[in-house]
Design a protein around this nucleic acid. Sequence first.
RNA 1: GGGGUGGUAGUUAAGUUGGUUAUAACGCCGGCCUGUCACGCCGGAGGCCGCGGGUUCGAGUCCCGUCCACCCCGCCA
Length: 596
Amino acid sequence: MNQYRTHTCGALRSSDIGKDVTLSGWLHNRRDHGGVFFIDLRDHYGITQLVVQSDAPFFDALTHLQKENVIRIKGKVEKRDPETYNPRIDTGEVEVRIAEYDILGPAEPLPFAVYPEDEVAEELRLTYRFLDLRRQQLHRTIMLRSAVTARIRERLTAQGFTEFQTPILTASSPEGARDFLVPSRLHPGSFYALPQAPQQFKQLLMVAGFDRYFQIAPCFRDEDARANRSPGEFYQVDLEMAFVEQNDVFAVIEDLFTDLFATFSTKRVDAAPFRRIPYREAMLKYGTDKPDLRNPIVIRDLTDVFRGSEFSIFAKQIDTGAIVRALPVRKACDQPKSFFNGMIDWATSSEVGADGLAYLIWNNGEVKGPIAKVLSDERMAQIREACEITDGDVVFFVCDKPQKAVDIAAKVRTRLGELLNLIEPDCFRFCWIVDYPMFEADEVSGAISFSHNPFSMPQGGMDALQNTPPLDILAYQYDIVCNGEELSSGAIRNHRPDIMYKAFQIAGYTPEEVDAKFGGMIKAFKLGAPPHGGIAPGLDRLVMLLADCQNLREVIAFPMNQRAQDLLMDAPRPVAPQQLQELHIRTVVPEGNNNR
RNA sequence: GGGGUGGUAGUUAAGUUGGUUAUAACGCCGGCCUGUCACGCCGGAGGCCGCGGGUUCGAGUCCCGUCCACCCCGCCA
């Protein structure tokens, strides 16, 4: 091929025996037996065993060469004895006898081993990310990400989507997350913002008549990190379609996800169409709008059963507005007392914040548990019926103010699923959460505000806005959830200025305020906008699921750490005073901060 | 901004109720070994125990402060 190699390190087979070859790569591993010396040579494609014996003139020098030096060797491909085949590498039936070698890229001692891939502090991995990326595990994940991205482009293009680029330097958006700002040199005191998402641009492309848009879009939000949320920047598979209803968007995503998960994972995947769960049903049954459907526990509301009951602790709380949520667990009656006590301790810890956790155990025709003797037979029968109890089942009860009870029940559901090993293994369970409420009331003031995206179309349109109590209005707003992980929100957009002004009016905005904040969009919508809608699944989270990673940084080649620093490039960092001057910027660093 | 966990050799960790010279594995350096593929064996070097202060005859260990990392809450329309 060229001066560096005739073959890659993953290429040689028995059919190449006898050939003179040139290989280049990293010195992956070495085994020195005194008279004979083995090298595993590694490149992107694989590993080839090299061998040299002590009669070679360069033997001594080569045996002192350390791992991760980049070398080139020339030699002859030889057959290995069958008993020395290495089935774990593709080239395991052959080896190359080194005739000559030279060092292409010398390596100083490493801060941590590329091989074997022992655990290393993440800070160190990030500081030397290029070494980390040499390791097989991360190397493969990044390759998977690339393959997934390519497949998405293929699949969406086949479905008639067109890929666009939208501006990176744009305007600060009035709502949502904190923006990253970029000072303008030409316009002193003014700033660009990096886009939190190309939301407005993609809608404008629909107004422009492009019909089906997509983009592997970089998004920037200046918010704090989580294990499944990068600080600063992340990527969305952003798409938008004109003249569509909700189900059209679902069909595109179901096709895409079914294909991606079948192609890149061996786990079982739900068949399309994915289950649709109305928001209110999800909040009741799972306590969250991102339910993990691998967990079989389904929550019930038993407020009415306990209202005015003999169990006065619950009855009194219900009288002051509390609700009761029940979590039936099948065949859990044999758990030891310590398990139930442990659940109570955990539930009442500050992490969860429950006042208590009641439970009943049905075992051999008897009902046991601290509250068993307090409740009448009649109520016990009602519980039994509501929770569809059969012998051996256990029910946990949470009683609290509505929002808190829902949250606690969700946590208890997750906890029980984990502790009792109820989570269905090796599968992806998808669902759409639909029928989000358009508005919500502030708990304290009662003020009406948008509960989600103000640009979603209300179900029922103008008529609903005019004639339905605001809190009862639903939106064409949806989320797709997989294994408890929110992959994306989307919506059929509100493309009608009249409906938009009305929706904003309900949320307390005057037309003037709407014009001031979203004038650009409104102007476009006044000049002939098609009905349209879309969605934007997070690429990083998608790859995370496919690669079975617990942390987003494992699917990003060059991630920032939790404090939004790039330890490899040393960003962010102070800049030269002259740069600030050109930008008309003066910094005021808080006292005690060393500016790093 | 708040809570949790952690910080000991290049790396990963152990270090007991405070008590002689702070351990081990891998890596590194030197030596031995002709068929390994986590090669094996012998020897050696390597430490601001995150940093600062305090208690004590004596601190890796106890106390206070501080810095750093990760996880969580807030935040993420």
